[in-house]
């Protein structure tokens, strides 16, 4: 599920430059790329399938990596510049991996008049990242989006796939805390299971 994003700031998608990608992640990504290559055959080699193919790639990989875009260009036999032209035009496509908990703060009109920008600022302050960025530990990424269609619940923030309505500055901390606690609980459970097995 991707939402329309305001910020189309392109960041270097190249892992050597912008992203410290560890070997394990790289391996996992290569495996996904192989899967993607198999899925290409579901689409005809037609120009009109370019956007659906890009959407499929992003669904699998969570972003469009340079390798993946090369593969698309190869499959559709279109110049790479064409692929990049289309991919960068649409807001849905992203060129860097999202965090584990992607946070989208809605700044549609209804959210804007109910002070959505203050919610965004609170997230920025708490997470110490700006909109369009991913936190260092890749736990959180923050984005501003234009209208998720839940205007009656304004201001709205979407964490993962869950829509949180009637946001307030004081609710921001609570939501982040809840994620922390859930993470700790999972870690503890894992530990418990492991020690139980041992």
């Amino acid at each position: 599920m991707a939402y329309k994003s305001f910020s189309r700031r392109l960041k270097p998608a190249c892992p050597q430059k912008g992203w410290k990608m560890d070997q394990e992640l790289l391996k996992a990504e290569r495996a996904i790329l192989k899967q993607i290559a198999r899925k290409f055959t579901n689409f005809g080699k037609k120009r009109q399938n370019l956007i659906p193919i890009l959407q499929m790639v992003q669904e699998e990989l969570a972003y469009l990596s340079p390798e993946a875009l090369n593969m698309v260009a190869g499959y559709l036999e279109l110049p790479k510049s064409e692929i990049y032209g289309v991919a960068t035009f649409y807001n849905q496509f992203r060129f860097q991996p999202p965090g584990k908990h992607p946070i989208k703060v809605c700044l549609g009109t209804a959210c804007h008049v109910r002070a959505g920008d203050i919610i965004l600022e609170n997230f920025e302050r708490k997470l110490k990242i700006c909109d369009g960025e991913t936190s260092e530990d890749r736990e959180f990424s923050l984005e501003r989006v234009a209208c998720v269609g839940c205007c009656a619940l304004a201001p709205v923030a979407v964490i993962g796939e869950t829509v949180h309505g009637h946001m307030a500055p004081s609710k921001v901390e609570g939501l982040l805390l809840r994620i922390e606690i859930e993470k700790e609980m999972q870690a503890r459970e894992k530990q418990k299971n492991e020690s139980g097995q041992a």
Partner: peptide, 22 residues
């Protein structure tokens, strides 16, 4: 499915997008 572009609500832009173009 669209890919997130407000201008694609305009008829000619929408049709260009359907054809897989910008």
């Amino acid at each position: 499915t669209g890919a997130g572009a407000f201008v694609c609500g305009e008829s000619t832009a929408l049709m260009a997008s359907l054809e897989g173009k910008v």
